[in-house]
Computed example of a mutant assay.
Amino acid sequence: MIEFYPQIKHFHIFCALLSGSLFALRGAFALADMRWPHALPVRWLSWTVDTALLTAAMMLLTILPGAMFANGWLTMKIVLIVVYVVLGVFALRRGRTRRTRAICYIAALLVFAQIYGIARTHNPLGWFWLLQ
Rank of each mutant, 00 (worst) to 15 (best):
L109E: 15
P6H: 05
V85H: 10
A32V: 00
T48R: 05
R43H: 13
A32N: 13
L130N: 10
A57H: 09
M68E: 07
T51L: 14
M76Y: 06
P41G: 10
R96N: 05
L74F: 15
T97D: 03
P37D: 01
L40C: 08
G66F: 04
A108C: 10
L31E: 09
Y105N: 06
R93E: 14
L125A: 08
T75K: 01
L53N: 00
R26P: 09
G88R: 01
H122P: 02
Y84I: 00
I2S: 12
V42Q: 08
L130V: 08
F29V: 01
I115W: 14
L87N: 14
F4W: 15
L45G: 14
Y84Q: 11
A39E: 03
G88S: 10
I78S: 02
L109C: 12
A108K: 01
I118H: 05
L54V: 14
A113Q: 13
V83P: 11
R93S: 13
P37Q: 04
R93Q: 12
I103C: 04
T100K: 00
L60Q: 11
A24F: 06
I13E: 12
K77F: 09
F14C: 04
V82W: 11
A52C: 11
M1V: 04
M68N: 06
R26W: 09
L87H: 08
A102F: 05
Q114D: 10
W73Q: 02
E3G: 00
R99C: 00
S21P: 03
L53C: 00
S21H: 08
W36I: 01
L61H: 06
F11L: 12
V79S: 09
L92K: 03
G66L: 02
